[in-house]
Design a protein around this nucleic acid. Structure first.
Lengths: 160, 160
DNA sequence: CATGAAAGCCATGGTAA
DNA sequence: TTACCATGGCTTTCATG
């Protein structure tokens, strides 16, 4: 799973390719070529190079969380029980293994980590918090905050 | 931009389709059919229905933020200057208009919003904070925390 | 050396039974 | 659900600036 083979110089056309594909990943090479102002063949070569360099990553379909019963977002600040290498590695492996934890950042400041958890409802989150998260030996304190609404949520990184 | 036309009953095969497509959105209908244990035609109809219902949303390509100079994540707690409808609407429109703000949640608790901002480095974020965010008339206080690492970041909602 | 144009193969989407 | 066909995208080749 090694990526980032070789730093590929990203020029203006590459950036336009990235900008288009991260909005619509289903574009054909022909359509993409038209939008970025290059030939289909050149476009195809660039896409392959960007993939090989690890700049262009997975193609994914987005699913409406509410439609599959995961409409509640909870942001959870968390401290680990100790800051040894082992405990942190154990916690991070745990985080990666739990599908309801979508995002996890190691933070500077008062808390060690910030998690985003999706749940069906408050009771569902309570079960996860008490039954799973706080049960894990690596976890110290946690402070949960419910999102009232998701004002914005995008996967598109600003390019340019 | 109306979605969610009609609540479509999602059965086990639909869930498997969603689970597969949110991991690999580039799957052909034939491959998808094989993985979920249905025929290609049936699979195709289900995908169309899920799209029409708004359950299956955009196909996007993920881009490595660091490769395009956006490797720093900042989580920013924020209060608006007042809680009137107008001020909140103004703030939320502002948030949606700024491409470096990837996520924004309206929160319960001490702060009104939580933002995730991607920046090139600390100085770049400082410019955004002082020059753009805090300059906006709707914004009151803000408290920024830098992510030391992105331990986990996925777009895949748990299905099932 | 990278690009652009052209062409063939093949897989795919879509339809009909 | 299975079978079929025509469409169109992917990939290579080649000539060019």
């Amino acid at each position: 799973m090694q990526r980032k083979k070789h730093l590929h110089r990203i020029d203006a056309i590459d950036r336009r390719i990235l900008a288009e594909l991260q909005i619509d990943g289903g574009l054909s090479h022909a359509d993409l070529a038209e939008r970025v102002g290059a030939s289909a063949a050149s476009c195809w070569r660039r896409v392959k190079a960007l993939e090989a360099a690890g700049v262009l990553q997975a193609t994914v379909r987005l699913v409406d969380p509410a439609a599959v019963g995961r409409g509640v977002n909870v942001l959870c600040n968390l401290r680990v029980r100790s800051h040894t290498r082992e405990v942190r590695a154990s916690f991070e492996a745990f985080v990666r293994s739990r599908p309801e934890i979508l995002d996890c950042y190691s933070m500077s400041g008062d808390w060690d980590y910030l998690l985003r958890v999706v749940a069906a409802d408050v009771a569902d989150y309570e079960r996860f918090l008490m039954g799973t998260l706080l049960e894990h030996p690596s976890v110290g304190a946690a402070s949960s905050h419910f999102a009232l609404a998701q004002v914005k949520h995008t996967t598109a990184i600003p390019i340019g």
